[in-house]
Design a protein around this nucleic acid. Sequence first.
DNA 1: TGACATCTACCTACTAATTGGTAGACAATG
DNA 2: CATTGTCTACCAATTAGTAGGTAGATGTCA
Lengths: 192, 192
Amino acid sequence: MENNNTAQTILNVAQDIVRNRGYSAFSYADIAKQVGIRKASIHYHFPGKEDLVKKLVEQYREGMAKACDRIARSNAKPQDQLLAFANLYRNGLAEHKICLCAMLAADFAVLPDSIQAEIRVFFQDTATWLASLLQTGCDAKVWDCSTTVEQDAQGLIAMLQGAQLLSRSAINGDAIFEQMVYPLLQAKFAQV
Amino acid sequence: MENNNTAQTILNVAQDIVRNRGYSAFSYADIAKQVGIRKASIHYHFPGKEDLVKKLVEQYREGMAKACDRIARSNAKPQDQLLAFANLYRNGLAEHKICLCAMLAADFAVLPDSIQAEIRVFFQDTATWLASLLQTGCDAKVWDCSTTVEQDAQGLIAMLQGAQLLSRSAINGDAIFEQMVYPLLQAKFAQV
DNA sequence: TGACATCTACCTACTAATTGGTAGACAATG
DNA sequence: CATTGTCTACCAATTAGTAGGTAGATGTCA
């Protein structure tokens, strides 16, 4: 994660903080200290908090899209792709990082409109991608789809986000996550 | 929800705010304005933020325990009790209220230790109650339990909390919640 | 009963620290 | 000499929390 670009360093640090403490509990002073510059210099790169966080979500959205794309291009079996998708969340948790947009969803009521919109797009994109994967598995008779794949996709994402949150407040977080997620995946998609 | 007791009014208002905006984004000034007293008077009833929020979680935990107890005492069929449990979350959402402890779980990293502990107890209690319901349904052959009921219980709670969060950031929140939750409940507990 | 003391629940008026943000100086680079 | 990126030094607003005062209710005792 090296870079010689201050703006990108600021974004990286900011992402870390938001994914750990949420939107309201992060400040320019925090970032400045960790990046090793002064508060005013952050304003040079990002005039206001809104600009910074908006860029943050945009970048996070791109990263997620790329990760999903890698999974899709792997040509693995649908059940393995589903597992790989779930593991994106497990891996984040292993670094003590909640999904950025899950954190921001909790702070939704205090976010500027432009960021609220950005988050909606993130969830919509993710749900659309997952629904398409579920449909593939359906067509291949890997699992059956009694309900619509769109609803299943949203339910799965909800479970993964919720599991991340709950895991963090448990003593043995990482283990809890797997114990939560895999049984439900198995129940819904028996052959996984 | 009437009361002539200032301390309880403060708690009610504080709960509203935290469930909507989270821990970091609520202030004594907010509460004072809504209650109709001065900031300093809140300190009279609750010396510090930690005291207030701790009491908040304690009370919320009692409320949840009572709600679960009512469901258990209803002697409804296990599948109906499970539905009633899920509807606790749906009803909260209908008033634009996320589960208090889901919000605080998001803010976990910035919470005082004593409150972190309180939240752990909440989730543990809830999971224990739900696991016992799942076991009842198991014994009555209403659904089967291939995995342990404890894991299923935690997975279900994760899904419900996650669904609340995601619903709020969706345009049509309430509808989305039901479309997410019920299909997954049905898949896992077929006869529900 | 009257006098005094205490307690409850609030108030005004402050504090020190932190918040996001701005103005303008300055050094390096091209 | 202009641009870029950083700095110091400020700003007004807000944060949780404190000090000290006060009106009114509730004792308590001669």
